[in-house]
Design a protein around this nucleic acid. Structure first.
Length: 490
DNA sequence: CACCCGGAAGGGGC
DNA sequence: CGCCCCTTCCGGGT
């Protein structure tokens, strides 16, 4: 991978600003993440300044954040753009969508809908979004602010962990589908919140669902490595976009670039970062979890954590990418595979990320029993451990090293779960041979209390997964000589 | 053809 | 330097 060190290199490619590094809308966040100079785009774009000015020149009736525009606003914007940039008349019928949807369009999408003007629109929108995000971020108490704790009730894990991690699944469903985008937009608009970090989930401690509270800020800083700042942005962004995925999705479906702005923000964790002031959430605010410095804090740097964060976003802003099918059982569906992969790629700064690659990473989780595939349903996976446990897993990982693998774990496949030391601990193990996974997940919601995951955990890395469920669970060991996984057959 | 599966190799961060 | 966690490729299966 390449991250570009330092400031963004100029990118050869075309459009200028697009590249601020990344795809658009997201940039905003990226900007935070990558401390480039974020506030203003200036340096990298040639045209730079002008655009900034545009913002101030927008029709007064238009909210500064294009994501909250309604259809009429979009029309107003287009008309303004036509005049302001002296571009060819735009077929407004091609933009029967709200601002949020328009912001989700990729440069390519925009170019298709507005030949000859797509780049301009894209660039302007990008800037407007970015500026809006910046403003919001600056607000002291932006919505983001946590404060509230309502989101998800925490499920007490008093009970054994297990699948039911969250109880409430609210309306996810409603969010699903096509309406997802609009609903999400709605939420955003209403809450206005926008942006900012969803739930940082867990990261550390908290875990997602449950602790939603924290969520809010959670963030930590992106992984991006911290390399300092570099923001880097690879340049490929667009290309990828073009090439792959994205379906040009209709306005309703957001594609990847979509919400970036709203992506969870995972700040880099630098060792040093102190907790910081309470006030600063923005980039700095991280911290949520008081203590645990010790923990590994993965804040979104790990794929499962990233997914949990999106899934448990209090505002449900990512349901168009990934959503729970049954939160209690941990079953979720990747609604927009390529879009989600893009988000993940952005998060990791691997802009060429695609679903194929991301799914490979997911498959690695099979062996450690973090995930399992819901057979028969495309793009559906199931978390085998609730967030809290996952969190523990982090520890486990760490422990792992120290601990000897001990237990069985011979070769790759099989294994048992061993609990490492977990606090609560469990010990457990269980394995079974399973054959089929739970496909049903939904169907068996509780049925499987936890455990059910029958699978064989292989390990690979983690040593024993603990099972989550109760602390005591049975152990089943089974060895499976076979290859791992879930898909027994195969 | 899209998904899904894992092996293999390699890279970046720690 | 080793380990972890992917990322990238890939051949194969469904």
């Amino acid at each position: 991978m390449k991250m570009v060190p330092g400031p963004l290199p100029p990118i050869p490619t075309s459009t200028t600003m697009d590249r601020l590094g990344l795809p658009l809308p997201f940039n905003t966040d990226l900007l935070w993440r990558y401390p480039l100079g974020f506030p203003h785009i200036s340096h990298q774009n040639p045209p730079s300044s002008p655009l900034l000015d545009y913002k101030s020149q927008l029709p007064a009736s238009l909210p500064s954040d294009p994501r909250v525009w309604n259809r009429d606003d979009v029309t107003t914007f287009l008309q303004w753009a036509e005049r302001e940039f002296d571009i060819q008349p735009i077929d407004h019928d091609m933009f029967q969508m709200n601002g949020k949807a328009m912001c989700l369009l990729t440069r390519t999408d925009l170019s298709e809908r507005a030949p000859g003007s797509g780049d301009v629109l894209h660039n302007v929108l990008q800037i407007l979004v970015r500026e809006a995000n910046n403003l919001q971020r600056m607000l002291p108490s932006s919505p983001v602010t946590p404060t509230s704790r309502h989101p998800y009730p925490l499920s007490p894990h008093s009970h054994p962990p297990t699948p039911n991690w969250n109880i409430l699944s609210q309306n996810n469903e409603s969010l699903h589908s096509s309406h997802a985008a609009s609903l999400a937009a709605h939420l955003m608009a209403q809450s206005n919140s926008v942006t900012l970090s969803p739930a940082p989930s867990v990261d550390s401690q908290a875990s997602s669902p449950q602790h939603a509270d924290n969520q809010v800020f959670g963030h930590s800083i992106f992984s991006v490595n911290g390399s300092n700042g570099s923001g880097s942005n690879p340049s490929d962004s667009d290309e990828d976009a073009d090439k792959k995925c994205y379906n040009g999705s209709p306005p309703n479906t957001p594609t990847a670039y979509s919400f970036m702005s709203q992506m969870p923000y995972f700040p880099p964790r630098s060792p040093k970062e102190p907790v910081s002031s309470p006030a600063a959430f923005k980039n700095t605010g991280r911290e949520f979890f008081p203590n645990d410095p010790s923990e590994p804090n993965t804040n979104g740097r790990l794929l499962w954590d990233f997914l949990q964060q999106l899934l448990n976003d209090p505002a449900q802003r990512y349901t168009s990418y990934i959503a729970w099918k049954n939160r209690e059982t941990g079953v979720f569906k990747i609604v927009d595979p390529s879009g989600l992969a893009k988000l993940w790629g952005i998060q990791k700064n691997h802009l060429s990320m695609n679903y194929d690659k991301m799914s490979r990473a997911l498959r690695y989780y099979y062996r450690v029993n973090i995930l399992r595939k819901v057979q028969g349903e495309r793009h559906c996976y199931q978390f085998l451990r609730n967030p809290t446990e996952l969190k523990n897993i982090k520890n486990i990982s760490l422990l792992r090293q120290q601990m000897s693998p001990t237990n069985t774990k011979p070769p790759p496949n099989q294994m048992n779960h061993v609990p490492a030391a977990k606090p609560d601990s469990l010990t457990v193990t269980h394995m079974t041979v399973k054959s089929e996974p739970a496909e049903l997940s939904e169907e068996l919601p509780q049925s499987r209390p936890a455990v059910e995951y029958d699978d064989k955990p292989t390990d690979l890395s983690m040593d024993g997964p603990t099972d989550l469920s109760s602390n005591t669970r049975h152990i089943n060991i089974v060895c499976s000589p076979d290859p791992p996984l879930v898909g027994p057959h195969h």
